[in-house]
Amino acid sequence: MTPLEPIAPAFVDMAHSIVWASVASVDANGRPRTRILHPFWEWDGTDLLGWIATVPSPVKKNHLAVHPEVSVSYWTTNHDTCSAECLVEWYIDDETRAAVWDKFATAPAPVGYYPRIIPVWQDGPTSEQFAALRLTPYRIRVMPGAVMTKGEGAPLTWSA
């Protein structure tokens, strides 16, 4: 059992059931900006990695060039929450972009979707408007809603 067990599987299950996350980055002046994104997480029994299919906007590129980290936070109406603080790397090579495209296109609902539904991605994974962000968590937290609403159990946390 790795130090991430059983937290990583619980994190992936909760994140993939909630799907949409608030993702925060920080600019060169230390000002945060959040956006709603749709990460896809992979747990192989040893490593937890996240992938975000996204438009490589100037704002995102500038923020991540200065501070290559993001905070990813999920919440749903029953108060289940999970979060990950991550190192971030851009991937703009064709092979990785195609692989990330396929991850989203072949994943089961609700986390899976066909990326071509995004209007600027009509040209597929080699579009200049399509990039992949790889997330490598250094801290994760999973808190079922019953922890807060009923005092049952405790949050699960892990730090690298």
Rank of each mutant, 00 (worst) to 15 (best):
M143F: 01
E69Y: 15
R97L: 07
E69N: 14
W20P: 01
S25M: 13
N78E: 11
M1H: 07
L133G: 03
W43F: 13
A65V: 12
V142M: 05
Q122Y: 06
D102W: 00
T2D: 10
P119A: 07
N78F: 10
L135N: 02
S71K: 10
C82R: 04
N29M: 12
S22P: 06
A109S: 13
P108A: 12
L49F: 09
D102N: 14
F130T: 04
D44Y: 07
W75V: 15
G45D: 14
F11A: 13
V120W: 03
V23D: 06
A24Q: 05
A10E: 15
Q129E: 15
T54S: 14
W51I: 03
V12S: 02
P119R: 08
T2H: 06
D123H: 06
I36Q: 13
A99L: 10
P9C: 11
S57G: 06
T136K: 13
E152F: 13
P6Y: 11
G50R: 02
M1Y: 11
V100W: 04
E128L: 12
V142P: 00
S71D: 13
A24P: 04
P58F: 14
P144I: 02
A15Q: 10
P125F: 03
Y138F: 14
G151Q: 03
C86L: 00
A154E: 08
G112H: 07
P110V: 08
T76V: 15
A160G: 08
P108Y: 05
Q122D: 08
T149Q: 00
A84Q: 01
L49W: 09
F11M: 05
E85H: 12
D27N: 14
C86P: 01
D47V: 04
L37E: 08
S127H: 00
K60P: 07
V111K: 11
H38M: 09
E42C: 09
Y91N: 10
L87K: 10
E42I: 15
